[in-house]
Design a protein around this nucleic acid. Structure first.
Length: 604
RNA sequence: GGGCCCGUAGUAUAGCUUGGACAUCACAGAGGCCUCCGGAGCCUCGAACCCGGGUUCGAAUCCCGGCGGGCCCGCCA
């Protein structure tokens, strides 16, 4: 007889501890407001509830807007609503104040719902049930011309964090890196490496000395093979003959005649770049090579359809274009060139093929792009519209990382800070911090911890800022381990882990004795833990990945206060419940670190 | 010239989508906390919504106009 596991009945613990409360509070307010003459559907009220919490309230409703429609003062109406409100289970009190109805949430059932949910869901706490929606997130997609600098890495951090958040929100997410192996930049790399070094222009040789070039074993081909690139780019500007050679190479690439070494060069540089990203836990599900859309004929198909599109035009020199006047692009002239006079395609044309492929496969398509790509995004949408595609990709545009003086990071100008250098510095500093505190760790352990601390300092420093604000890069802030930083969050996690290690028996489940979670620091911690599911849903909806970074700091800080004031191991009757709370805090901190792509540290 | 984004304490940031109660948090500054589970921590204090109009009972938030900063307006990617 086969063992039959019990059926997965409806979960006792909702994924979001606030879900039921929000519904019943909105319902109660709807009834009370209706009785006062102000009709408001519960769904609308739910969005109006303020759940931020204050000293004397947990959930509040501002009644000003309703006061107006019933011709009463906000204070009057708030008083009446507070009086007539039938308090749902879990609400202790309703008190009017300054036009608000302030509700006190009973901390006992909230603690029960929160800890129950964390114990039941474990690693999945904070996330939602599967939605069945497939989403493609394209991010990074930097040209394979050399090492990542910190500016470019912002794209990868936003994209990868968004990928993690969307996954937690229940979507089926595929992350893609679009590899440009067709354009001029890729051609420039192949152009220079196709020549023996003796034939390199003097300027390029000077900028890329022999010893900086690839040897037998080359751990970092992005640095070595990419080394001549800035000099080549500069050289071509002043040398039309060389520039024509590169143009000819671009044509060869597009006609499917790449030099033998071309693909391999791109691949090797890319591999080096990806090794950098791996240090901050960023990887990709798929790499999509631009050349595949030429090989499989889809670019030709796009060109054919665009030539027959409603606003297709032919330039005097034979270039094909779309008259985009109706799309109101912020360009001086309204043409979008589809193919050059020589018949070759442009980046945006090939990007149309790529996006058609993505949209055929994914109902939701998201691209993470730097602010300079706004016009490109609009152009792409215009071309997709010309082809009769009603959907459009979603674009997450972010501002740059700027230097303290406001200047740009530029590899060519020598102002870039490279990710590897920053990480090396951060890891070095982390090692010193560890050694200053501990003398009981093996060297290998110190190194492993330092790598994780350094990576988290760097990644968090960029993830914490809203995408539409520039990140001002300073070494001092990027290398800080105090306050609003990744290591601060890891520290709280390590402290929680330490308590659990010292407890003779780890909590095996939620005790259910929520009334023992009774002091303010404990209740504040419960409240913070309970907010994660709602926040993940919000972050997934708005793509505001930085809100998760802010939350991580809040939660860590709340845990630290609890840690400071509330004894756990030395507690007597409450010991077990407090251990459960520590377990839940650790779990939630850990899940949040995952969302941000930061490593958990059991000790540091 | 046209378009998009940003402007919050000394510095750096949250809040702006959907207007609402003394505007979040950190760093730096001043002052405290180690008989106690990890002081990368905790507590206290001082300090901010670019300017001008408008809408509104109410504006950091919405609208208009300035000013300052970033980006774009390639048959580059």
């Amino acid at each position: 007889m086969a063992l039959v596991s019990p059926p997965e009945g409806p979960s006792r613990w909702p994924a979001d501890p606030w879900a039921g409360l929000g519904r019943s509070v909105a319902q109660a307010f709807s009834v009370a407001l209706g009785a006062a003459g102000a009709a408001a559907p519960p769904e609308a009220l739910r969005d109006l509830l303020d759940t931020a919490g204050g000293d004397d309230w947990d959930v509040a409703l501002a009644v000003h807007r309703f006061a107006k429609t019933v011709g009463r003062s906000p204070d009057e109406l708030a008083s009446e609503i507070a009086r007539s409100l039938v308090r749902p289970a879990g609400i202790l009190s309703a008190v009017p104040k300054a036009g608000y109805v302030n509700l006190r949430v009973d901390p006992v059932p909230l603690a029960d719902a929160t800890l129950g949910a964390v114990f039941e869901r474990g690693e999945r706490y904070g996330g939602a049930e599967p939605t069945g929606l497939s989403v493609c997130v394209e991010h990074t997609s930097a040209n394979a011309t050399g090492p990542f600098h910190v500016g470019r890495v912002r794209n990868a951090i936003i994209g990868d964090t968004l990928t993690r958040i969307l996954r937690a929100a229940g979507h089926q997410v595929t992350s893609q890196y679009y590899v440009d192996d067709m354009g001029r930049q890729a051609a420039m790399i192949t152009w220079i490496w196709s020549k023996p070094r003796a034939e390199w222009p003097e300027e390029v040789r000077g900028a890329a000395p022999e010893e900086a070039l690839p040897g037998e074993s080359d751990p970092r081909p992005d640095r070595t093979l990419g080394r001549p690139y800035p000099a080549v780019a500069a050289y071509l500007k002043g040398h039309p003959d060389a520039d024509r050679e590169v143009t000819a190479l671009v044509q060869d690439l597009e006609q499917g005649r790449p030099p033998l070494e071309h693909h391999r060069l791109t691949e090797r540089i890319l591999r080096g770049m990806l090794a950098s990203l791996q240090r901050i836990n960023i990887g990709f599900d798929e790499f999509v090579w631009e050349s595949t859309f030429l090989t499989d004929g889809s670019v030709a198909e796009v060109v054919r359809r665009l030539r027959a599109a409603p606003h297709a035009i032919v330039e005097a020199n034979g270039a094909r274009a779309i008259d985009a006047a109706t799309y109101h692009l912020p360009k001086e002239d309204a043409r979008i060139i589809v193919t050059r006079a020589d018949g070759t395609t442009l980046y945006v044309t090939r990007d149309v093929a790529y996006h058609l492929a993505k949209m055929a496969r994914f109902p939701r398509v998201i691209d993470v792009l730097g602010q300079d790509h706004l016009l490109h995004a609009k152009t792409l949408i215009a071309l997709l519209t010309e082809l009769g595609e009603a959907r459009a990709p979603e674009f997450i545009l972010y501002q740059y990382v700027v230097l303290p003086d406001g200047g740009k990071m530029s590899t060519r100008q020598g102002t870039a800070v490279f990710l590897d250098d920053l990480l090396d510095e951060a890891v070095d500093r982390a090692r010193k911090e560890i050694l200053a505190r501990r003398d009981d760790l093996a060297v290998a352990d110190v190194d492993a911890i330092a790598a994780k601390l350094g990576a988290s300092a760097v990644r968090y420093h960029i993830a914490r800022v809203a995408p539409d604000k520039a990140v001002r890069f300073t070494w001092e802030d990027a290398l800080s381990f105090e306050g609003r930083t990744g290591p601060f969050v890891q520290y709280s996690y390590a402290r929680a882990s330490s308590i659990l290690r010292k407890a003779s028996a780890a909590p095996s489940g939620w005790t259910g004795r929520a009334q023992e979670i009774s002091t303010p620091p404990e209740q504040a911690l419960v409240r913070s833990i309970s907010r994660l599911p709602g926040l993940v849903a919000y972050a997934a909806r708005t793509a505001h990945v930085h809100t998760i970074a802010g939350y991580a700091h809040d939660l860590a800080e709340t845990f630290n206060r609890f840690y400071q004031d509330v004894p756990v191991l030395r507690a007597e009757v409450e010991r077990e419940s407090r251990l459960a709370l520590v377990h839940a805090a650790r779990q939630t901190l850990g899940n949040t670190l995952d969302l941000l792509g930061l490593d958990r540290l059991e000790a540091m």
